[in-house]
């Protein structure tokens, strides 16, 4: 059973792009770990500080539509991974970013807007957290003394990639 979860970073805007997640000038780094300080450096949102405590503590990101649009850079999932964020929940994803997440064994989970609105209603709670059970396809949001369980869809292939821990070994053994 593969589970993800922990404190949530809420990014309340659509079309958050790869250049905001990790600017191109850092793509000259050769190791994933070297990307760590630059997470979401160019993202400008009211109340958001890329170097703040909320960013540091986050294990899950909740955002809006078309998350991860733009470049194909896998550095975007990697900069999340090395900062301990292994799941993003959004209304929709750009194709390449979504596939990159699953290819790395991480989760890109889509929820309908109404359910995302419910998640965002937790944004004010300092203890907002989400735990995700990929096998059961459920996520549990908690905070402010409340708890709510959501179910989500995930393609069987993407689920297999998460459970296998990524695409390289899967493909090399099979093709």
């Amino acid at each position: 059973m593969k589970t993800f979860g922990g404190p949530v970073l809420f990014l309340d805007r659509s079309d958050i792009n790869t250049d905001e997640i990790i600017p191109a000038k850092y793509l000259t780094e050769i190791t994933k770990q070297d990307l760590k300080p630059y997470i979401l450096e160019d993202l400008k949102l009211p109340g958001f500080d890329p170097k703040g405590e909320k960013t540091k503590a986050a294990r899950v990101i909740v955002s809006r539509a078309n998350f991860g649009c733009g470049s194909s850079r896998e550095h975007a999932p990697w900069v999340f991974e090395v900062n301990g964020i292994t799941a993003v929940i959004a209304e929709s994803f750009a194709r390449i970013f979504r596939q990159n997440m699953f290819n790395c064994g991480m989760a890109a989970i889509e929820l309908p807007k109404e359910q995302l609105d419910l998640l965002f209603s937790h944004a004010g709670n300092a203890d907002a957290a989400i735990s995700i059970d990929i096998e059961a396809q459920t996520l549990t949001a908690s905070g402010g003394g409340k708890q709510k369980v959501f179910t989500f869809d995930i393609s069987p292939f993407d689920k297999a990639l998460v459970l296998a821990g990524g695409w390289v070994d899967y493909a090399d053994s099979k093709y």
Binding site: S72, Q99, N100, V168
Partner: peptide, 9 residues
């Protein structure tokens, strides 16, 4: 366009 893992495969 694909990411680095797809490219690797």
């Amino acid at each position: 366009g694909v990411g680095t893992t797809d490219l690797e495969v």
